[in-house]
Computed example of a mutant assay.
Amino acid sequence: MDTAERQTILVVDDEAQIRKFLRISLYAHGYAVIEAARGEDAIRKLAEESPDLVVLDLGLPDIDGQEVIRRMREWSSAPILVLSVRADEAGKVLALDGGANDYVTKPFGIAELVARARALLRGREAPAAAEAGYGRGGLEVDYAARRVSVDGGEVRLTRKEFDLLRLLTRDVGKVLTHEALLRAVWGDAFADQTHYLRVHIGHLRQKLGDDPNAPRFIHTEPGVGYRLSE
Rank of each mutant, 00 (worst) to 15 (best):
D2A: 13
R227G: 02
R156E: 14
V12Q: 04
D62L: 06
R118A: 13
E48Q: 14
S229G: 14
L120S: 02
V155K: 03
D57T: 09
F21H: 13
D62C: 08
A129N: 08
L22I: 10
G133N: 07
R44G: 07
A87E: 12
I80A: 07
I24H: 13
R147W: 01
K207P: 07
A144T: 08
E131V: 08
M72K: 01
E89L: 15
L26K: 03
D57S: 08
F190L: 10
R6G: 01
D41F: 05
A145V: 04
F162P: 07
D13A: 05
V33S: 06
G137I: 00
R73M: 07
D211I: 10
G187K: 08
V155A: 03
R70F: 11
V11L: 03
I43K: 09
H200W: 09
A47V: 15
E221R: 11
R124Y: 01
V141I: 13
L139W: 02
E89Y: 11
V54H: 01
E89V: 15
L26S: 06
E89C: 04
Y196W: 14
T220F: 00
D97F: 02
H203M: 12
G153N: 13
E230V: 10
L26H: 03
A36H: 02
V82E: 03
L182E: 03
G187Q: 06
L139S: 02
R227S: 12
L176E: 04
A144H: 09
R44P: 00
V82Q: 05
D13F: 00
Q7K: 12
L176K: 11
I9Q: 01
L120Y: 05
V175E: 03
A78R: 04
A144K: 15
G187A: 09
V54F: 04
V82P: 10
E230P: 03
R146F: 05
G135F: 04
I201W: 01
G223T: 10
S229T: 14
V199E: 14
R205C: 04
L94N: 12
A28V: 03
V93H: 09
P61E: 02
V185F: 06
G137M: 01
A100I: 07
A115N: 08
F190W: 14
A100C: 10
Y103T: 04
L96V: 10
V175N: 00
A42S: 07
R38T: 13
D62F: 07
L120C: 10
S25G: 14
A130V: 11
L83Q: 00
V141P: 01
V93M: 11
K106S: 02
R86N: 11
L60I: 10
A111P: 00
I110C: 09
A95G: 07
R166F: 02
H195I: 14
T220R: 12
Y226I: 01
P222V: 05
T8R: 12
G30Y: 08
Q193N: 14
I69T: 06
Q7T: 05
K174R: 15
A32S: 15
G133R: 02
Y103N: 10
T8I: 08
N101D: 15
R166G: 00
E112R: 09
L46V: 12
G39E: 03
M72D: 04
V185R: 01
I18P: 00
A4L: 13
E74N: 06
